[in-house]
Amino acid sequence: MEVIKVVGEDTQSVFPRVLAELVRRKVEVDKAFVGKVNGRFEMIFEVKNSFLNGKLLHAIRNLQDVVSAEFLKESYLCHWKVSPECGSEEMIMRPGSESG
């Protein structure tokens, strides 16, 4: 299993574009977390068989409106609490543990 972090500009469909690129390259996406942070989209993908290694990141970086793409070597916390009544309370995407 590998974890990829992609940051994209706040433009239409940057997330499906990245997803389509991963699928096109036979990369299995098990989980994805996406949210807008400081005016940019941050995307965290838990993937299998990203056999293209560095080349995959280059391909994603070459997509228009993608700012960066990297494999994560450390734990990463993505937390989203949302309800119809209270709206989206919290969105955290940063290195750390459950307690951190």
């Binding site: 293209l52 080349k55 995959l56 280059h58 391909a59 970086r61 070459n62």
Partner: peptide
């Protein structure tokens, strides 16, 4: 020119 192709 395409970094995704070099060495792919």
């Amino acid at each position: 020119i395409d970094s995704g192709e070099v060495g792919k």
